[in-house]
Simulated scan of single mutants.
Amino acid sequence: MIANGARIPIEGVGNLKLFEKNSPAFYLPQFTSNLISVKKATIDLDCQVVFRPNEVEFQDLKTGRVIGRGDSRNQLYHLQTAKNSNPIDSICLSSTAD
């Protein structure tokens, strides 16, 4: 069942390579778009997801490295394809005023 309550038949189950990691996936040929469950992705990929107004990042929980990205277009987040989403080191800078 999808978010609007409609029932879409699952016609197969397979594996998807998402950000160079394997994740189980359902095959729904009636769907016109590829969608992911953020909750399932965080479990399967052992990552956290950071949403910003114009982008999204998937970060490995153990290393903090960015393992995948996407941008915002037409009110949806579009993930970059695997060939374009090389892992990038995250850097966090902070400062304090005395």
Rank of each mutant, 00 (worst) to 15 (best):
N34R: 04
N34P: 01
N34T: 12
N34W: 00
N34Q: 05
N34M: 06
L35V: 08
L35F: 04
L35K: 05
L35C: 04
L35G: 03
L35D: 03
I36N: 03
I36Q: 01
I36F: 05
S37F: 02
V38K: 01
V38I: 15
V38M: 02
K39C: 07
K39R: 12
K40I: 00
K40T: 10
K40D: 12
A41M: 11
A41Q: 01
A41K: 02
A41N: 05
A41W: 03
A41D: 05
A41C: 15
T42W: 02
I43T: 13
I43K: 14
I43A: 10
D44T: 00
D44I: 00
D44N: 11
D44W: 04
D44M: 01
D44K: 06
D44F: 08
L45Q: 06
L45Y: 02
L45E: 05
D46M: 09
D46A: 12
D46S: 14
C47T: 03
C47F: 04
C47Y: 03
Q48T: 15
Q48L: 14
Q48W: 09
V49M: 12
V50Q: 10
V50G: 07
V50A: 11
V50L: 15
F51R: 04
F51H: 10
F51E: 09
F51I: 07
R52G: 09
P53T: 10
P53G: 00
N54A: 07
N54W: 02
E55A: 15
E55Q: 13
E55S: 15
V56D: 04
V56K: 02
V56I: 15
E57C: 13
E57N: 13
E57Y: 09
E57R: 12
F58V: 10
F58N: 06
F58A: 04
Q59M: 15
Q59I: 14
Q59Y: 10
Q59C: 14
D60E: 05
K62H: 12
K62S: 15
T63V: 11
G64S: 12
R65S: 12
R65E: 14
R65H: 13
R65F: 13
V66W: 00
